[in-house]
Every structure is written in C-alpha cells, then in structure tokens.
C-alpha cells in the first residue's frame, strides 16, 4: 500500500493495488485525526522496530505474554505506554486481552488515539507482509507532511460490541455519511475503526485492494485471478497463525 518499487519482484502488480499503496503513503505521512504526521510515522517506525524487540520475542515464546516482564527495545521517540501498544499489536495481537486494553486506557492513552495507532500499526504490517511475500524490501517510510490533526470525534460513535466505541450502521450521519458506502451488511470489522472515520475508510480501501471489497465478502462468487477458495485458504491459514478468532 505504499508507493514502493515492486519491480524487483518481477511480477505484475494490479493497478488498484498500486493506487492503494500510493494512497496509504499519503495517508501515513499526513496529519491524522489525533496524532501528528511526525507521531504517525514514529508509530510506524516503532512498529517495525518491534520485530527485533527482545521482550516481544520472549513474550511471544512464552505460554502467556503476562509471564514475561521487562522493557521493550525502543527507538526512544514515543512514550513507554505507546510503545507497549505498538509492540503488542505488531507482534502478538492474537493474545491481547480486555484487561490489557483497560490498563492501557486507564494509563492515559485516549481511545481515539488508541484506535488511530492500531490502524497505523496494522496497515504497515500488511504492507510489510505483502513486500515479504513478493520478496522485496519493505518500503521506506515517507517524510511527514505539515499540518495539525483534525481532532474530529464523531458524535455517533458509542459503546457497542467492542472494546472501543463504534458507529452503528444506522447511526451514520453528516461527515460520516459515506463511511460504510451503503453496504447492505456492515460487519464489525468494517466498524472497528469508526471512532476515527478516516482510519475506517483507509481500512476499507486497503481491504478492497488486497482482498475483496468488504461489501462483497459474503458473496462467494467474487474472486480475483486466484479463485475464492484459494483466497479463503490463504486467509484462513494467515489468521490461524495470527491466532485470530474473528
């Protein structure tokens, strides 16, 4: 999703994928809703740094991540509570718990900032795994653009079937009127980031380019060059390895 040179892979990259990459590059380098562009890129850089973190490695190998204490190997730009979230989401998201989330929020990280952070870390993980699969280097992070975060919190976001507030499909209004694209069925994954609508939009764009449009997930006839059974097998094996129940 980042405008990076895929030519070393020696395979043709779809135009919609290239366009999604270009858009994400701009998205990541722009001021967000709650984090500045500098902070967003610091989160992105820290998420890559997490891959080599000794504490994360020990936790990943442990029966429970809570059994291992210590300090993260960090780039030193972000506060410790933010580093903890970035590293856990990048390296061991399948074993996050509500207790852990509540502790993070009680520690002072606002839900809005948390949601935007999760989006940045997840999107970059997707880019990096895509690059790894193609056999090319992950793209360099872009330079930050100027400007201030919009700090727009949708009034329609409410506590629902998730740890974070979300916008119900029937509650979309005003600035968020487009957020679900009129899809007949709005799965929770489509709503997960809706507390920060621009991140929800980016997730949909990324999903559509890399997999199928969210609105088409339930239609087994929708496919790409890879047939749908093959796509679902790949998806299911990835999710099993990530220990993701959803």
């Amino acid at each position: 999703m980042i405008d990076f040179d895929c030519s070393p892979a020696g395979v043709p990259i779809r135009d919609d994928l290239r366009e999604a990459h270009r858009f994400l590059r701009l998205h990541l380098s722009s001021p967000g809703t709650w984090w500045s562009a500098h902070e967003r890129l610091a989160i992105a850089a820290e998420s890559r740094n997490a891959i080599g973190c000794g504490l994360c490695g020990e936790r990943k190998a442990a029966l429970s991540p809570n059994a291992v204490t210590g300090s993260h190997d960090t780039l030193g730009v972000l506060p410790a509570d933010v580093v903890e979230v970035v590293h856990r989401v990048r390296t061991d998201s399948g074993r996050l718990s509500k207790v852990w989330f509540d502790r993070v929020i009680a520690g002072g990280l606002e839900e809005t900032r948390y949601v935007e952070l999760v989006s940045i870390v997840a999107l970059l993980a997707g880019v990096d795994y895509f690059a790894r699969a193609l056999g090319i280097a992950p793209p360099l992070l872009p330079e930050p653009l100027g400007g201030e975060p919009s700090r727009h919190r949708p009034t329609s976001a409410k506590a629902q079937a998730a740890w974070v507030p979300m916008i119900a499909a029937e509650d979309v209004q005003d600035l968020e009127a487009d957020i679900y694209g009129g899809a007949p069925f709005v799965p929770n994954i489509m709503r997960a980031l809706s507390l920060v609508p621009d991140e929800a939009r980016m997730l949909q764009r990324a999903s559509s380019a890399h997999y199928v449009a969210v609105a088409q997930i339930g239609d087994p006839t929708v496919r790409r060059s890879l047939d749908r059974m093959q796509m679902e097998l790949v998806a299911a094996r990835v999710s099993a390895l990530n220990e993701c129940f959803y």
Partner: peptide
C-alpha cells in the same frame, strides 16, 4: 496470494486490538 496475506495481517490485528 501475497496481497491476501497482507490483507489478513491488517484485518487480524484490527479485529484483535479493538475486541470486536
């Protein structure tokens, strides 16, 4: 196949970190 691997490394993290 590579893109689907990327997609589900995004979706899985979002799902698990938001507790949907």
């Amino acid at each position: 196949a590579a893109a689907t691997i990327g997609a589900f490394n995004i979706v899985d993290r979002v799902a698990d970190a938001t507790g949907i």
